[in-house]
Design a protein around this nucleic acid. Structure first.
Length: 174
DNA sequence: TACACCACGCGAT
DNA sequence: ATCGCGTGGTGTA
């Protein structure tokens, strides 16, 4: 099923490349991690983050005035927490539950997939936790990079280099 | 329904 | 280090 109400989006030029923030009714719906080109970033927004949407509108003014500065501060290593409201109502109950739990993991902390499952209504569904995070359309704001496997890094949709880079920014060392 | 797919965890090689 | 299996939510048909 496809949704017709438009997603507004804006490019964020960061030292690491072109990122995109996407929103709807002032709720964050997507975040594309910095890419080499804005075309590449938009392609990811459409095909990877929000494949169920078919309408996107470029909008230069963000609903949250401080957001751009916070993103750049985060990427320069500052301890930044993102509290902007998010939306991910396209997912089933359990996936939404997992995303809500992970949204609240603070900067600099990590948890395992198993720990997240134990915080949820399905104590042994740690595999489903990984599956839910794999579909996270709002990485960084919903900090799925802070969820790791018990004895390894686990996975990351953007590639493990990105997960390692984000964790390193937050002072983790391998 | 049924079936395959997984960003897991664990115990046995 | 690698393998096999249990596991449970989700997507697809």
């Amino acid at each position: 099923m496809r949704k017709s109400n438009p997603i507004f989006y804006s490019f964020l030029t960061t030292p690491l490349g072109e990122a995109i923030i996407g929103w709807q009714n002032e709720l964050i719906a997507a975040f594309v991690l910095p890419q080499p080109t804005s075309e590449k970033a938009f392609e990811l927004l459409q095909s990877y983050h929000l494949p169920q949407h078919d309408s996107f509108k470029l909008e230069t003014k963000l609903p949250w005035p401080a957001f751009f500065d916070k993103i750049n501060a985060y990427f320069s290593g500052e301890k930044i927490g993102f509290t902007e409201p998010v939306i991910f109502d396209q997912f089933p109950d359990y996936t939404r539950q997992i995303l809500n739990i992970v949204k609240n993991i603070p900067w600099g902390e990590v948890k395992t997939y198993q720990e997240i499952a134990q915080l949820s209504s399905r104590k042994k569904a740690y595999r489903a936790v990984g599956q839910a995070l794999h579909r996270n359309p709002i990485p960084l704001i919903i900090p799925c990079h802070r969820v790791v496997a018990k004895s390894s890094l686990g996975g990351f949709g953007y590639g493990l280099e990105w997960k390692l880079r984000l964790l390193t920014l937050e002072k983790f060392h391998l």
